[in-house]
């Protein structure tokens, strides 16, 4: 992995008396994708907003490039509903000083890769959710930023558009951009190089997805009825269990855990530590 350029160190953010983030550290390297996952109110958006300078940190350090090297997609997509696709893209390009042939080249490539070339004269407000997110991403990428920050780019987007969005993000990283995105989908987070799972403003898990899964240890399995073990939770139509004991519960079978299981186990263990009560 390349050396870390951007990121946050021991970052804490308070909104009045409420702590939104506490001692969060995350390094962002050129050419890699980091995903911040977590439930609603976990602090994902606050972390992004602090990184791009929209929220002042209460303490800690924020490392980011100058504004002209940051691409940002807010959760609302940042698309002007009363401007056309072309006008939105042109505005973003001009804001970042991309003009003339450079703009024409970027425009052609981005519209083609987002599938928006046939919609260039449609108003932003008339686009579907997926198209609006893709346009927002194109606006964030038009100046080839060194840091790309995306707030829930795929939320509310259909599977095909999600795939296209991920294609754009992956290509940007491949071209050397450091990408930080938030997501509520752990399967999506699993496709990134680094995952940072936040829970109530604190880091619950952080690392490469494979390493996080490998690091859980113990044994996990599933059962059709709730097993009598220390840690159990529902997943789909079955129950999952996890234990550090060698003996699995009766009537169950072992299965390989994935990132979602790793996050659930970490959350349950944290709750047990805090409350002294399992589950």
């Amino acid at each position: 992995m390349k050396a870390s350029q951007w990121g946050v160190t021991d970052l804490s953010v308070d909104y009045g008396r409420r702590t939104a983030l506490r001692d969060v550290s995350l390094d962002l390297s050129s050419g890699t994708i980091a995903a911040v996952a977590g439930g609603d109110g976990a602090g994902k958006t606050t972390l992004l907003r602090a990184l791009v300078g929209l929220v002042p940190p209460t303490s800690g350090d924020v490392r980011r490039p100058t504004e002209d090297a940051v691409g940002y997609l807010p959760a609302s997509s940042g698309v002007y509903p009363d401007l056309t696709v072309e006008e939105n893209l042109r505005f973003a390009a001009r804001a970042y000083g991309v003009r003339g042939s450079d703009y024409q080249a970027a425009r052609a490539e981005l519209l083609e890769r987002t599938g928006l070339e046939g919609a260039s004269d449609r108003l932003g407000g008339n686009l579907s959710g997926g198209m609006r997110q893709k346009l927002g991403l194109a606006m964030a990428l038009v100046h080839n930023p060194s840091l790309l920050v995306l707030d829930e780019p795929s939320t509310g987007v259909d599977p095909v558009s999600r795939k296209e969005l991920w294609g754009l993000v992956t290509d940007a990283a491949r071209a050397g951009t450091a990408v930080l995105l938030t997501t509520t989908y752990l399967d999506e987070a699993g496709r990134s190089d680094v995952v940072c799972v936040l829970d109530a403003g604190e880091v619950l898990l952080q690392g490469a997805p494979d390493a996080l899964v490998r690091g859980v240890g113990g044994s996990m399995g599933e059962a059709s009825t709730e097993p009598d073990t220390h840690f159990t939770w529902r997943r789909g139509a079955t129950w999952r269990w996890w234990t550090t004991d060698a003996t699995p519960p009766a009537g169950s079978r072992r299965v390989a855990l994935d990132l979602q299981d790793a996050v659930v186990i970490a959350a349950l263990r944290k709750r047990e530590q805090l409350e002294g009560v399992p589950r």
């Binding site: 791009v52 300078g53 929209l54 100058t66 504004e67 002209d68 940051v70 940002y72 807010p74 959760a75 609302s76 997509s77 940042g78 698309v79 002007y80 509903p81 973003a92 804001a95 970042y96 000083g97 606006m139």
Partner: peptide, 13 residues
């Protein structure tokens, strides 16, 4: 309200 002011804040203006 449309969230574009946030976008402007991050742009090099």
């Amino acid at each position: 309200q449309s969230g574009t002011l946030e976008q402007l804040a991050v742009m090099p203006f």
